[in-house]
Computed example of a mutant assay.
Amino acid sequence: MNYKEIYKDSDKGGAYLFYGKEKYLIENAIGYLKNKYIKGTDAFNYIKIEGTEATPADIITAAETYPVMSDKKLVLVKDVSFFISENNLKKSFYEFLENLDNFVILIFWDRASIKKTTKFYKEMKKLGRDVEFPKLSLPDFRNFVNQYFLRKKKKIKTTDIAYFIEKSGYNSRNEDKTLLDIKTEMDKIISATSGEVITREDIDGSITENVDSNIFNFLDAMMKRNTEIAILELDNMYRLNEEIPKIFYMIIRQVKNFLSYKILNEKNIYPNDIMNEIGVSQYEFKKILGTQNNFTKSFLVRFYDELLEADELFKTTSVDEKVILETLVIKYCNG
Rank of each mutant, 00 (worst) to 15 (best):
N2R: 09
I6P: 01
D9M: 09
D9W: 12
G13I: 04
G13D: 02
E27P: 03
L33F: 11
K36C: 00
I38K: 06
K39C: 14
A43V: 06
A43H: 14
Y46D: 06
T55Y: 06
D58L: 07
I59N: 03
A63E: 06
V68I: 15
S70R: 04
K72M: 07
L76H: 06
F82Q: 13
L89K: 04
K90Q: 12
K91E: 14
F93E: 03
F93M: 00
E98Y: 12
D101S: 14
I105G: 10
S113A: 14
S113D: 12
K115I: 03
K119I: 09
K119Q: 11
E132S: 07
D140S: 14
F144G: 01
N146V: 10
F149Y: 08
K153A: 13
K153M: 09
K154H: 11
K155V: 11
Y163D: 11
K167I: 04
M186W: 09
A192D: 09
T193P: 02
E196F: 13
E196D: 15
E196Q: 13
V197F: 01
E201M: 07
I203D: 02
I203A: 04
S206W: 03
N217E: 14
A221W: 08
A221G: 03
M222E: 10
N226K: 13
E228H: 13
E228M: 09
I229E: 15
R239F: 15
R239V: 11
M250I: 05
Q254V: 02
K256Y: 15
N257H: 07
L259R: 04
K262G: 03
I263A: 07
L264W: 01
N265W: 08
D273A: 08
N276G: 03
S281I: 12
F285W: 06
K286Y: 15
Q292Y: 15
L300P: 05
V323N: 02
T327H: 14
I330P: 03
